[in-house]
Design a protein around this nucleic acid. Structure first.
Lengths: 151, 151
DNA sequence: GGATGATAGTTAGCATGATAACCAAATAGG
DNA sequence: CCTATTTGGTTATCATGCTAACTATCATCC
């Protein structure tokens, strides 16, 4: 997350520009705007997920499992490969999702190490219940920040 | 942070579009691109900060203290007000920064509750040492992701 | 001037991210 | 075949975010 409430803005960047003349003000400014925008949206989405007993990662795991077209399962390592998260975090989160009955573990036929992950019907149902509101939050945010947000 | 490595993309969004016709595909797609971009940049910056024994928040606290023009101190609550972070996290982080001698606490003359926060010279030095590389990382990222990143 | 409420900061406990180090199973190469 | 490496997953430990609930001080206002 990124936290600066009032972006550094011209004035401050000018000061640093004097000290570090190489800095490209416009580029830096738009990068900071990008980070600020994203962190605002992330807060909104996190709040939305929390209401539904989910989190970014929990939600994305469901999405990744649901969007698989040719199979109804993935190996844990495949889930991890599709999401940019460390393996221990993945393991822990899969465990809590399984505790909550949103997904099931199964054994691999031929690979004794692997675990197959499958959405339960509760998992699929939860995802489909959450998705419309997710899109709505995103759209509202994008509209409301059309002009830059703060007047 | 946002983690989807391969963005959902048209194909997947189309599927959801069928199920949730209200969804505005272009808006959602650009929001997801925003989140993805920001999380990539955040990773880069976090890695950079870690190298210098800093973090997003530790860095931003230094920035906020340094950019104050008319004073060389802020109350802890003022620092918190400029950064979008909860007070307990602020307190803890200020403590570790003080342990690392990057800033000092002082008492307020008239308000017995308040703490004055001041950059030490080590703090100011650290910040100025880190800033050029910080801008460089940002600029490199912005250039390299000009076209969307993945080929 | 004493109750009442607001503000500054801390403590306790939880969630969720990371690394390092580990075990067990599979694979590769001689 | 048998060692050596890679791969799948877990455990332990830490960092850093949060909320709820607390203390202490200040401000208000009757």
């Amino acid at each position: 997350m990124f936290f600066l409430k009032e972006l550094p803005t011209r004035q401050m960047l000018e000061v640093y520009k004097k000290r570090f003349p190489d800095m490209k003000m416009d580029t830096v400014e738009s990068a900071l705007r990008l980070l600020r925008q994203a962190s605002l949206l992330l807060r909104i989405l996190d709040a939305y997920f929390t209401k539904h007993d989910l989190s970014q990662l929990r939600f994305l795991i469901l999405v990744v499992l649901d969007r698989e077209i040719d199979r109804d399962w993935l190996m844990a390592s495949e889930v991890a490969a599709r999401l940019d998260v460390s393996r221990p975090v993945m393991a822990r989160t899969l465990k809590t999702l399984s505790d909550d009955k949103l997904l099931d573990f199964d054994e691999h036929d031929t690979d004794g190490r692997a675990k197959l992950i499958r959405l339960t019907s509760k998992g699929r149902w939860t995802l489909h219940e959450v998705l419309p509101g997710y899109y709505r939050e995103i759209e509202q945010f994008m509209v409301s920040s059309q002009d830059g947000g703060t007047p």
